[in-house]
Design a protein around this nucleic acid. Sequence first.
RNA 1: GGGCGAGUGUCGGAAUCGGCAGACGAGGGGGACUUAAAAUCCUCUGGCCUGAUCGGCCGUGUGGGUUCGACUCCCACCUCGCCCACCA
Length: 830
Amino acid sequence: MVQSPGGAGAPTMTDPYDPKTIEAKWQARWEADGLYRVRDDASQPKYYFVTMYPYPSGDLHIGHWYAMTPSDTKARYQRMRGHNVLFPMGFDAFGLPAENAAISHGIHPYKWTIANIERMRGQLRSMGAMFDWSREIVTCLPEYYVWNQWFFLKFYEAGLAYRAMAPVDWCPHCNTTLAREQVVGAERVCERCGTPVIKKDLEQWFFRITRYADELLDFGKMQWPERVETLQRNWIGRSEGAEIVYTSEQGDPITVFTTRPDTLFGATFLVLAPEHPLVEKLTTPEHRAEVTAYVHRARRQTEIERLAEDREKTGVFIGAYARHPLTNARIPIYTGDYVLLSYGTGAIHAVPAHDARDWEFAKKYRLPIPTVIAPPDWDGKPLAAAYTGEGTMVNSGPFDGTPSGEGRRRVTEALERAGRGRAAVTYRLRDWLISRQRYWGTPIPIVYCRSCGAVPVPYKDLPVRLPEDAEFLPTGESPLKYHEKFRKTTCPKCAGPAEREIDTMDTFVDSSWYQYRFLSPHDAARPYDPEAGRRWLPVDQYTGGIEHAVLHLMYTRFFTKAMRDLGLTTLDEPMLRLFNQGIILGPDGNRMSKSRGNVVNPDDYVGTMGADTVRAYLMFIGPWDGGGPWNPRGIEGVHRFLHRVWHLVLETSSNGGGGGAPAAPASLAGEIRRATHQTLKRVTEDLEAFRFNTAVAALMTYMNRLADLRAEGGAAAVEWQDALRTLVLMLAPLTPHVAEELWSRLGGAYSVHRQPWPAWDAAAVREETVTVVLQVNGRVRDRISVPAGIDEARLRDVALESERVRKFTDGKAVQDVIVVPGKLVNVVAR
RNA sequence: GGGCGAGUGUCGGAAUCGGCAGACGAGGGGGACUUAAAAUCCUCUGGCCUGAUCGGCCGUGUGGGUUCGACUCCCACCUCGCCCACCA
């Protein structure tokens, strides 16, 4: 303990701030004491805080620090606020990089992954975060992935997991299928590696997320950023409209979907997707050659080519006709590749006058374009372009004169009465394709038997373990494909020879329920302990990147709803609140990447300036959801701040409170107290609202203020020691090591992280005098200092007496005086 | 084409139930300490007006509007970012 010899504010020798030593010391002590071991009891209100777990790539990036240290600050703050905080950590340990390492370096994915985890665990500890490591989960261990298989079987029994042949997205580089959510951008590239995907027809396993499409659109039970809600809403893509049944002249029903049933009378042709089964059936002999050639051409084209924006509409007449459901008009049937089999019913009726695509098609093939919705200013002449807005129905038989909005309802009703259609809703959302043709994932617990078909592996035989002696091929194919011992098995039903499913699960399955597993990570009997679930769930606060908006964040919502319907939870939503932090960029403002050479290694800064400085700087840089470039100079300002705190606290820690020190004037005592409580208020409110940047700024302001007050002799005041303690307590969540050290040197009981967060006193915050701005016609002309409680009439009088105000009102008539108590007076003079 | 978000000093940013624009920090200028440098400390730092003080004008992407008063609210536009996109 450093004791200064006394004397108000006299500079004394203190040992220098040495983050390296104190951080190592306290991290060891915290661990030895189990300071962050969470008690599974209800003596305090619970607070379950999860920050997205990392993929064990091998090195902890500054981005991990940016995601995790503000989360840790918030978790620590909640703990000081008297909550029992569960703040777990784990590793998202399945995935392709491990397999790629196996192929290129000949190291088994398990070894590679575990070695990375060990390295990263150490780096994570250097953050000084209060993770409860006793609850760590590692998803590639059988004790974790057995429950993925268990959920799969449950889902299978409930009809939520099914196998189907479908045109699916295939990444030729990763050698696997992908979920639709994992294909991104206009170029339709693999979310992982950026390679353009291709379409393949394959039998794959799906989770029936579409069953929850409507429920997933309801965000009422949680507080998530609007941005994520919008992304998910757009992704689900709900469209209301009608299904309308046309009939081919051969008698086949042809169902189309439209969002505009009010335009039904303007339909002049049908277009079927080239893959539509009726194309083959209805094509007449004289058109067959042309249609077959067209369909073949369309199939050969990539999705990208077919979806290209400014592509000319093409199609061919198949020789067949259909009958309009209400008018019985004869309508030609085309096939065209601008109609997608995967959306709606794979067939449309074209209303060229009121749809830009149909317009283009009709112009090209000289098809009629009758106007059936009159724009408000319509002159009765043919339209110059497709009109897609609202209007009045015309040329629509009994519906003429009906506004288009009402028309949608009435036409749908007429179709329903005629048995030729019904109100319908379609979604863009597709079921979640979970099969991956990879090794390093959870084996899908299914066995294929020649006589029994696809048979689920019995629960008692779980887990289906990944074979450890797999051989990794440079072709990039899954080793399971050639692993006879794994593949060959017997049918659980008939005991005959059978083969295992060799595909593994999408790694997003792992993270869909991990927040449950943290509650009882070693439970061998069930995925999680419902008793612990009742105590801890739902997650009070979740944090992570926005890039998972329609991936993980949608999948985990689906999982919880599916679990609820299986009786495994009572929750509707897994996470109440979500915060998306931004992305930290390289010093050049670009995304960090090895190839650019702009990667910032946190270890470099931790080694020189300490973890506390890196933490505080990442929080100070700007609003947490903003991200931004790493400025290597900026961090020095924060480091200097911690230095100044160190010296201020230690040099004045034994002054004041008598002991022969001269008493400080009473006014100084009031100033100290006021600054302390004003800062407490600001920092408290900022931490509540995730405004870490302004919380740090408030602490800097406070520190500067204390330094000024010290120069005025404030360190001799009784309040000074309280100010120092409060400063250290407020720093504790942000910079836990230096706070612990200073707290101990101030004589505080171990640990500062067990102390309650101090409450601010509203009376102490209030200023005795306030500065009031005096304006003339809205322009600031003077600033005056007045007692805080001054009444309006008096303030008005004082303002009108101001010489500077009078200078601008001279010769004018005062028309009005607006008084905002305690803030401002505006004199209106003309 | 549609949706969402953002434009504030040299830079990161602060201030939005409408009320002192630029907190805090970086960078820069000047000074103290030092043989010197680093570190540290003090100090100035939006622009313009021949301008340190006192003082004035302009200033939060652009143009309008509402208001005693607009970074904040409304309308239109420009720019940038992200997402979706022949979705019927």
